[in-house]
Design a binder for these strands. Structure first.
Lengths: 171, 171
DNA sequence: TTCGGATAGTTCAAGCTTAAACTGTTTAAG
DNA sequence: CTTAAACAGTTTAAGCTTGAACTATCCGAA
């Protein structure tokens, strides 16, 4: 990415313009990542709806709670799910109304409440979770274990790289 | 869970349950891909809103039209964007109302209409598009070109693999 | 010709999502 | 103690998204 000797004029110019030719490739990479994720996500949503009559956000919230038997606060859930605060409020209300999730008050902080799965919620989630895991395995089945491992590693680099890029932004 | 007295019993059991141990890795891979995409997408949405007062779906629709100066039908757009038909109807109406997109009737098929960018829409999109390309390049900057290429290739395999898996489903 | 199925769009209700404004609570500085 | 800032959740308006039901049109076969 740096043919420096010879004539540096072009490189300087394009660098300053901020959109060197090679960046089309980044765009293609991004669009491919996005369509990959969308493809899988759409199918998972469809199956959750058809086979369990639920939705992905509800499943995701329950998955968070399943990992933490002691419960989680709404704020923690919203950070883990990378969604807004108000979103979790509505989602939680609906799950509580359906008897899948229960609220518990914090011992000393009256602002805070913990959410956890009810026994029934735990049962329901186990069924959904097992199916979900099978679906994912099925969708990735054609990719070799070696390639899956490589992909996992590369995505990890992208994730931390993006996090890093966003860290030094506005503060 | 299962306290295994013997040896092979566990493997058999878990295999028959349809959720072999190794499939947790697929789950992790999927969650990482999803959070990667979400991370980037959220940031792009934020910048489109703050810097251009627009949204990602509007930008995406205009991007489709920008690539096809002759125009596209609503159906084609919805398939390319991987969203529902009704979604495009609403999105198009809003863009037409804003003078960014125009409709044109099909010569012989009265059901069909073509959408294309207006001159003003083309101008606006060029600005947004250039910024968008810079943002993506910026977010991927910390990943080496070699790794980006590898990632692109692997995601291509996943995409076609998933498409294949979904093809032999219900039909 | 006409009838039935396929196709292009639209509409609608329901749910998701967000940013921003808001309430109530805690914490820490003065 | 007082007060201001930080924090946990809630509410609200606006927009996105979907699946399903619907209208209108086209096209091919009997």
């Amino acid at each position: 990415m740096s043919p420096d000797d010879g004539r540096a004029a072009v490189d300087l110019e394009t660098a300053l313009a901020g959109t060197p030719a090679g960046h089309k490739e980044d765009l293609r990479l991004w669009l491919r990542m996005l369509s990959c994720a969308t493809l899988i996500e759409t199918e998972i949503r469809r199956r959750l709806r058809e086979q369990f009559g639920t939705t992905l956000p509800r499943f995701d919230l329950m998955a968070q709670l399943d990992r933490e038997p002691d419960g989680l606060t709404l704020g923690r859930i919203s950070r883990r799910m990378m969604v807004s605060n108000g979103n979790v409020t509505a989602l939680a209300a609906s799950l509580v109304a359906d008897g899948l999730v229960q609220r518990r008050a914090h011992a000393t902080d009256r602002r805070t409440q913990f959410l956890s799965l009810t026994p029934h919620g735990r049962l329901v989630f186990e069924l959904q979770s097992a199916a979900h895991e099978r679906w994912i395995a099925e969708l990735f089945a054609s990719v070799s274990p070696r390639d899956r491992a490589a992909l996992h590693r590369l995505l990890g680099m992208v994730k931390s790289g993006v996090r890093q890029a966003l860290k030094g932004e506005s503060p």
